[in-house]
Each structure stands twice: as C-alpha cells, then as structure tokens.
Design a protein around this nucleic acid. Sequence first.
DNA 1: CGAAGGATTTTCT
DNA 2: GAAAATCCTTCGT
Length: 220
Amino acid sequence: MPLPEGPSLDFLGLDHLARMQRDAFALDTVELARSLVGAYLSYRGRLLRITETEAYRGGDDPASHAYRGRTRRNAPMFGPPGHLYVYFTYGMHTCVNVVGACEGEPSGVLLRAGELFVPDPLSGGMVSDPANRVPRTSAVGPGRLGRAVGATVADSGMDICQPNAEVAFFLGDPSAHDPVVSSSPRIGVSGGAEIRWRFYDAKSRLVSKHPRGLPNHTFG
DNA sequence: CGAAGGATTTTCT
DNA sequence: GAAAATCCTTCGT
C-alpha cells in the first residue's frame, strides 16, 4: 500500500511557512475551521498536517460544550482567539480545539484528523510517518490525534500565539499543496446535525469515515 | 463488510 | 449518577 497522498516536506523548514499569529485565529469560528484544513501543526516537536476540522460556534450551538454556559472545563472557549481548549472524554480520549472568534460568543474548532510527519535522515526534510497507515497509531479521529501529539488537559488554555509557545500553527504552502476543502455535517453530535460545519481535505485519505455514509470522499 | 457493545474517568446536574 | 464533540473489539452476515 502506498503512503497517503501528501506533500513531500523537503521545503519544511517551517521557517519557510508563515506562522499563524493572533489575527489569523481571530476569524469567525467557521472560517477558522475551514482555513485550518491544510495548515501544519507543531505540537511539542510533533508535526501534523491538518486534514479535518469541525466548528463549534456560539452559545446557541446545541452540539457545543459551551451550550449550557461557561464551566471550568470550557472556559477557554469564552476567551480570546489563539488559545487551546483541550478536554478529556469517554474516560480515555483527549481532544484538541483552537479558539477562534464569534462576536463575543464561545468558539471552538475541533481538530479531528491529520497526517503525521517525521524527520527523514536522508533528505534532512520531513516525510509522511508510516504510523499514518495503521489506524491505531494514526492521527485520524480526534481521540487519536490528541494521543498522537501527546495532548493533555493541562494544555487547555495555552496561548499558542506566544513567540515561544510549544504549540504553533503554520499556514500551508498554497502554491505547492492546495487542499480541496469539502464540508459535511459534523460527526458524533447529538444536535444540530444538519449544519455542515465539518471541513476536510477531499484529496486526503486520512480523514474519518462518516458514520452515516454522508458526504465523505474516500480514495481507495 | 456493518452493527453492536464495552471500556473508562472527568465533568456537570 | 448519567452523559460524553470516541475508539476498539467482537460478532454477525
């Protein structure tokens, strides 16, 4: 089986990519979710190309953790853009969100899937991680992504716009590897199932499978 | 293949 | 005490 379609990251040297600053996160939550597909995430030294996100926008989104108001857990969703909201669920999964902007209302973009990269001693660049091929070790699915980058709830609230933050996003190189961003209803939500706030790269194999066979390209 | 059920613990009611 | 923005295994076609 071939490795998943993806960029050869010889150019990566993340220095060549623009690091996302506060203004890049201060977008409407849904716009941020869309723009993060194809972006690179550096999480304490682990590198990931984001392939799938979901938006949780506003206090009247019934699927959002913020739906029933502010609690200690979801507090970062009510704060300024460019911070992490990390939560623990189902007794075993740690899921990572980024806070965007929503007119003073709570905001969260759930990182649902990505393609892992590892250093390549031969080229000196980064190459797709063989772990991507094994569902268990991949970063496909929010729980698996959280595990792959080693996220913990202690990371919740982290300001990722500080110059020396251990977590940072970089905009992908549009001229080299445009994602084809498609949308679908969100996965695993109990309310608001008609809203298409899930975004994914239709060119990537490394996206989650929609339980209901709803819009979701699969290549191979 | 797909459907069903268990795992496991934090958070909130 | 119940639910949870999930994942994995098992069991049935």
